[in-house]
Amino acid sequence: MGIARYWREIPQRYNLIGTKCGSCGRVYFPPKAICPVCRRKSIGKMEEYKLKGTGTVETYTIIYTPPPHFEGEEPYAIALIKMDEGCYLMGEIVDCDFEDIHIGMKVEACFRRIEEDGTRGAIQYGYKFKKAE
């Protein structure tokens, strides 16, 4: 990923900043410019919204054959998480034995290294999830 895109996405990657529709109250992550439900009624009413970072594992899988940037980190768990605000997002589950991961498990966001552009490039940080304390 290019530096400019990473930098633009820092608010969502570090702090789970999404958007909330001022018309219906639905929360979106990643942020949306328009609410797909309220459409024109939401124009000008989409507000920044910081997710609490807590959610529930909806489903998950263990990756044994990762994409090139993540080679060497396998195996790792990727989960679809339903955030407490109702939106869904995908994230890695860390610090948890695979046999303990289950659908319905409560998780919370933590801050980790995501990838780096070789040894000379920038390091990208962002959210992952761990079992809720």
Partner: peptide, 13 residues
């Protein structure tokens, strides 16, 4: 530290 932990992530936590 785990593979995805460094001084920045520990500081943030």
């Amino acid at each position: 530290p785990s593979m995805d932990e460094d001084t920045a992530t520990i500081s943030v936590e």
